[in-house]
């Protein structure tokens, strides 16, 4: 491995890193938003919408991100909608992640025993107060590990962005290898940058889990 080449490649990888992180987190924010909306829809059994959510979740959970990205990137222009690769990446990740987030948040909501609802109601609380002050905080505590796992999974999934010519980390590594055959250096940097991207998330996730779970579970 040539340190000189590595030094030379760092700025290129840094640029790709920034792009990957940016689109990755926009996608995750989108996924969380979709997850919250869909989980609430399912939890409150909103007619029609709840069934639609079910279809959406099963469709996106059971198809690979690569296929979804191809569908959005090459399919939408066919019906006259043009979007950039960046937007496509964020939307694709958001839709895939949304289906996972829906399940994590829903399972948290549904894990709360009925007695919690009944005791809150018997204290004269309204449905809104019950949901906001009793159900939601407990459900969140239960959902946190799942949500953190989803975030890590989604950040790793960004590696398929290269398939729609996004200049992400994976694309950059493959590109550089193809151009200059500096395979070792490129792969080394690829691994390092992914670790830099994910390690803080893992650590922060563990910390958050500890903090929010302490109240209810004590460990």
């Amino acid at each position: 491995m040539d340190p000189e080449i590595i030094r030379e490649y760092i700025p290129i990888f840094t640029q790709a890193f920034i792009l990957t992180v940016k689109i990755g987190w926009i996608g995750i924010a989108l996924a969380f938003l979709i997850g919250v909306l869909c989980a609430f829809t399912t939890y409150f059994k909103i007619p029609v919408a709840a069934a639609a959510v079910r279809c959406y979740v099963e469709l996106f959970r059971n198809t690979p991100l690569l296929v979804q990205l191809f569908f959005i990137y090459y399919g939408l222009p066919a019906v006259g909608i043009r979007i950039s690769a960046e937007v496509c990446g964020a939307i694709g990740l958001g839709l895939l992640g949304g289906s996972y987030m829906t399940e994590s948040i829903r399972s948290g909501l549904e894990a709360i025993p009925v007695i919690q609802t009944e005791s809150a109601l018997s204290l004269g609380m309204t449905n809104g107060q019950l949901f906001r002050d009793v159900i939601l905080p407990q459900a969140f505590t239960i959902s946190v590990p799942g949500i953190v796992a989803n975030v890590i999974f989604l950040l790793k999934e960004t590696s398929v962005f290269s398939a729609i010519s996004l200049m992400d980390l994976m694309f950059t590594a493959k590109d550089l290898i193809g151009l200059y055959y500096n395979t070792m250096e490129s792969l080394f940097l690829l691994v390092i940058f992914y670790v830099i991207m994910l390690l803080p998330v893992s650590l922060a996730g563990t910390l958050i889990e500890k903090k929010v779970r302490y109240r209810m579970f004590g460990d």
């Binding site: 007695i115 919690q116 005791s119 809150a120 009793v134 905080p137 407990q138 109240r215 209810m216």
Partner: peptide
């Protein structure tokens, strides 16, 4: 109630 119904997060 019979079962413990306190709010566990509070």
């Amino acid at each position: 109630f019979q079962s413990y119904d306190l709010f566990p997060h509070k």
